[in-house]
């Protein structure tokens, strides 16, 4: 079934039609979300009541646009803050892990490697509750033992960051390892022969080489954190990130405001995707 093997015309046509259908199926939900962001109606559904920008810029009830809707704006800020911290942490630890597994042979290496992969096969909601249970025990223990009230161990931003970090680090490690494996180690040795210390050699030769992977890992981590739902749901406190806020609204019944937020999300993530492709191409 490859181009060099002739196939009956009907088979070829059917195959092409299937591919077209598949891409329509992929595009359909996103297209309707985008289109209904401009519907001049209280509900994101038919009939079409005319075109409007109100769900973006509207200032009056009932049609308050995204840019004037405080709770949504605040939760976007919360999400962005969490995502930046999670990405920084997971890229840092991921780089360290990549060097560890790439450069050192030690006992339990294989075991630790499998352990490092495990967060990927633990359901997100289970990661969330296990961290919730453990941190509450720590907080209660501290309170009973010393009378110290540690707010950061209760559901809230810190726990969300830890929860997301716990599995995004694995992904960052894999992305960075993949590039580090292709690095020619003799370059580093040459730098050291020329008198550089190990740290200087790594900082001036290896890290710049890893640059695209570091940026790639950062972008992926950022998106995964920004969009995370399952783990976050179990750890959320009073400051809800965007996905949770949108979910609560969706349960109550949706307005095209949600479509407008979604459209903005689509635009931003496509932009990030483009940035990443440009970086990887270099």
């Amino acid at each position: 079934m490859i181009p060099t093997i002739p196939q009956p015309r009907a088979v070829r046509l059917a195959y092409n039609a299937y591919i077209v259908l598949f891409f329509l199926y992929l595009a359909l939900p996103l297209a309707v979300v985008a289109v209904f962001a401009f519907n001049d109606s209280q509900f994101p559904s038919l009939p079409w009541e005319g075109f409007t920008w109100d769900w973006f810029f509207g200032t009056e009830r009932p049609k308050i646009g995204v840019f004037h809707e405080r709770p949504i704006l605040r939760s976007i800020g919360t999400s962005a803050f969490i995502a930046v911290v999670v990405s920084l942490l997971s890229v840092a630890v991921g780089t360290s892990n990549a060097f560890l597994f790439n450069r050192f042979q030690f006992r339990f290496r294989g075991f630790l490697y499998v352990l490092m992969l495990l967060p990927l096969v633990v359901p997100g909601i289970v990661l969330g509750i296990s961290i919730l249970v453990f941190s509450s025990r720590l907080a209660n223990g501290l309170e009973d033992g010393t009378g110290l009230e540690l707010e950061m161990l209760r559901p809230g931003i810190v726990l969300i960051i830890l929860g997301q970090f716990s599995f995004i680090t694995t992904i960052a490690t894999l992305v960075i390892s993949a590039r580090l494996q292709r690095f020619d180690i003799t370059l580093e040795e040459a730098a050291m022969n020329l008198g550089a210390g190990r740290i200087t050699a790594v900082a001036t030769i290896t890290l710049p080489y890893l640059g695209p992977a570091l940026i790639g890992a950062f972008v992926v981590a950022f998106l995964m954190s920004f969009e995370n739902f399952n783990t976050t749901l179990m750890l959320v406190g009073s400051d809800a990130p965007l996905t949770i806020t949108m979910f609560d609204r969706l349960k109550e019944g949706s307005t095209p405001l949600l479509n407008a937020v979604s459209l903005l999300l689509m635009l931003v993530s496509s932009l990030l995707a483009l940035v990443m492709i440009m970086v990887q191409r270099k």
Binding site: L26, A27, L28, P29, L30, A31, V32, V33, F36, F43, P44, S45, L46, L223, F226, E227, F229, T243, M246, F247, L250, S254, L258, N259, S262, L265, M266, S269, S270, L272, A273
Partner: peptide, 23 residues
Amino acid sequence: VPFWVSELVRTFGWMILLRETGV
């Protein structure tokens, strides 16, 4: 491309498509 967008948005899209007053 669709997977750069949050799962919430994708699910929301299916909701608009499938519901009683939907597309």
